[in-house]
């Protein structure tokens, strides 16, 4: 699925409010009521219940669940995974966008399709295919275990699963932006005698920095929250391979509901912060970059 598509901001202040005089007041009232009602029961209530349940047993339970060893470790692991995933995807995104927008070559649509593929794959399948590759009877599993490299049930597996699910989030906006910007700036720099790397660092990178940040933000949010793919490869070891979402699940299944929601509320707060940053970044990006939702 195209998660990046979701990110076009709903609200852009520069768009003038169109006249709505055409709709009768009754219809208008009715439509607004439906919107309020639908969004409330589908989104607002679940978000609210996360925080309500987190504090349902008092702030001492809330705090003690947050500072428990397993929670802190899960937080650390999630941050570690994100620290690997986001830079790796940024470098890939820049490299793929450079190749796809500065050159023409056969097989371009194939490359683009591959970049879109994770959107069509269930996260569980994404995790499962990694088990097929890195499991004991997989293609690379036996070789790597000879070498003493662990992938499944450890951090590399979680990183790989997260990369699979998130890499288009950075590559997509970058490709869209670099395509819209064309090559003129780079060509000028090159004709003035700058080297390839210098051109990239001083011309291209500043040009795309907001798109890069934007993709990085989305990728970060998703890395924090990825559940299905990670669940298959992690092994669920408390204090070792449980990421934050897996820790939430473990607590919830142990009937430690208040603790589960305490950790969940931390993730929910991060999600809200992400949305605020996203809103800020979207003002700095041209329309088409935020997602290919422009159909014309």
């Amino acid at each position: 699925m195209r998660d990046d598509l979701v990110l076009s901001a709903g609200d852009r202040p520069d768009v003038k409010q169109p006249a709505s005089g055409g709709d009768g007041p009754l219809l208008r009232f009715f439509l607004i009521l439906i919107t309020w009602f639908f969004l409330s029961i589908i989104v607002l209530l679940p978000l609210g219940v996360v925080f309500a349940e987190a504090f349902a047993r008092g702030s001492s339970v809330f705090l003690s669940s947050l500072v428990s060893r397993d929670t802190l470790y899960a937080l650390g692991l999630t941050l570690t995974v994100t620290a690997f995933v986001v830079p790796a995807n940024m470098i890939f995104g820049l490299s793929a966008a450079w190749a796809l927008t500065k050159f023409d070559f056969p097989g371009k649509p194939i490359l683009l399709t591959l970049i879109d593929l994770p959107f069509a794959v269930s996260p569980v399948v994404a995790g499962y295919v990694l088990v097929l590759v890195f499991g004991p009877s997989g293609w690379l599993g036996p070789v790597l275990s000879e070498l003493g490299v662990k992938v499944l049930f450890s951090t590399p597996g979680i990183v790989l699963a997260t990369i699979f699910v998130t890499f288009p989030m950075i590559a997509r906006p970058l490709i869209a932006l670099m395509e819209s910007q064309g090559c003129e700036d780079e060509e000028t720099a090159l004709s003035l005698g700058a080297g390839g790397l210098r051109t990239f660092l001083t011309v291209t990178l500043p040009n795309v920095r907001w798109a890069l940040l934007y993709g990085g933000l989305l990728c970060t949010a998703r890395s924090f929250g990825e559940f299905g793919a990670v669940s298959v490869v992690s092994g669920h070891i408390r204090g070792l391979t449980n990421t934050m979402p897996l820790h939430v699940e473990a607590l919830y299944n142990d009937n430690k509901v208040a603790a589960a929601f305490a950790v969940a509320s931390l993730l929910a707060s991060l999600a809200v912060i992400t949305l605020i940053f996203k809103f800020v970044l979207e003002r700095r990006l041209p329309d088409g970059v935020q997602g290919p939702e422009r159909l014309r």
């Binding site: 992938v151 092994g235 408390r238």
Partner: peptide, 22 residues
Amino acid sequence: IVVNMSHGGSGKQARAVRDGLE
């Protein structure tokens, strides 16, 4: 020292160890 735990259905856990859970 730290003792880490992994819990789950026993058959599933045995397979996980066989599949590389150390």
